[in-house]
Design a protein around this nucleic acid. Structure first.
Lengths: 229, 229
DNA sequence: GATCTTAATATGTCTAGACATAATACCGAA
DNA sequence: TTCGGTATTATGTCTAGACATATTAAGATC
């Protein structure tokens, strides 16, 4: 076992985990011991183990040491694209149409989720994104008006998403996928019957303590969101 | 701007990117220059920039230098849980029932997707996962029998997913989410009408060149798959 | 002008040693 | 026994310097 770089060490440790030389839950030798065994500096071992820990295969704690994760959690990563780029990357023409926009008091569920006062008005935007003229996704968005400049940008010209990406830094956010039956305007946009199964992506973003936006993106029928593991 | 650790430097560089001090596409100062500016060693700057590159905010190339990514791709990570753990973590009782299992030739779409000979039989497993006795997810799985030991594990006792996680290392895989209308046995399992919108996770995994399994996990109505950004 | 060779350069990684920090183990006092 | 304080320990991070490597730019040759 001639280990030269940190990736070799990473690979060898991974092999031992998979081969059950170091079974789940077991504490593995410390960095110093491994550095000695592999004939490298401790920093090199550290880099390899840190990488494995980031991938969820090891759990590391000061003083306790490093142990093999009980449940080898697999992590998948999703690149959240700007819709325009996603569509143009497929060689299709992108366009969008702003269906509705107004300042209004959102439902309680929305303000509660964002931690805002229940009677505070927010900017409501409803947009349909088109690929080669066909509806690709329906976007329903609540936007915190406190974070917008005066005058408010013209979201009929520049999509809210792109404006946000370019102008507001977000520090935290979460994202969920769910399936929902089409109804009302969404069904109408996609030209499907009420009740058709559609994939919805829900997203909230925050700038420090201040909520930026709550977004529901309903995809066209049959759409798949692909991730790499 | 007193920068002490690599995370401070990461934060400051991020701030400059967002503030458009360094606009998209622009080459930023080299590591040596930044190390000088921040009063740290080059390795510390390297760590910060490497982290930002992994997050998709910078693009780095030897000799060319480091530039701000044109499209600030956001990456979300999904921890793919073992269903039993996910359910038990919510304080609910986990159980599963094997509805069907047999060795049979899969449809063409399956063998084509996995790159196997079209007439090669595979192990078909249909399972329902229960939380507190209520159906939580319906699992339909094709499994490559060439990778199983003799005798074949008893998947009525140990769920196929857990057996795989524990015994087969996979090197690659992909994952997709889609919405689908309930029908047949799936509708029956969840006690919903045909046509109800359900969230489906499709997953294929490989061990080197050999496909391991193709899985369709249909979630209970209303289920949300949550990710952190 | 076109192609091959060579030098220059920014990032990638390693080392040896040092100090920081979190978490545990130990021990003494109430 | 229980509660705090203290020592110990493994990981986390930094430094200064070095060499490796990919890639581009410049130069030489045909």
């Amino acid at each position: 076992m001639t280990a030269k770089g940190w990736e070799d060490i990473r690979a060898e440790v991974l092999r031992r985990i998979r081969a059950r030389d170091w079974p789940p839950g077991q504490v593995i030798p410390g960095e110093e011991a491994l550095a000695l065994e592999f004939g490298v500096a401790r920093a090199t071992v550290n880099r390899a183990l840190t990488a494995l820990a980031k991938d969820g295969l090891l759990e590391r704690r000061r003083k306790s040491g490093t142990r093999v994760a009980e449940t080898p959690v697999r992590r998948a990563t999703l690149d959240i694209p700007i819709l325009r780029h996603e569509i143009e990357a497929q060689g299709r023409a992108y366009a969008f149409r702003l269906l509705d926009h107004r300042l209004t008091v959102p439902p309680l569920a929305v303000t509660a989720r964002l931690g805002l006062a229940p009677d505070q008005p927010m900017l409501w935007l409803e947009t349909v994104h088109l690929a080669d003229g066909h509806p690709h996704a329906h976007e329903a968005r609540w936007l915190n008006p406190a974070l917008l400049p005066e005058p408010v940008p013209d979201f009929a010209q520049l999509s809210a998403n792109e404006w946000l990406v370019r102008n507001l830094a977000f520090t935290a956010g979460d994202l969920a996928f769910l399936a929902e039956a089409a109804e009302g305007r969404v069904a109408e946009v996609f030209g499907v019957l009420d009740g058709a199964a559609l994939l919805v992506m829900e997203r909230t973003t925050w700038s420090g303590e201040a909520p930026i936006t709550l977004l529901r993106l309903t995809h066209a029928p049959g759409h798949r969101v692909q991730m790499m593991v």
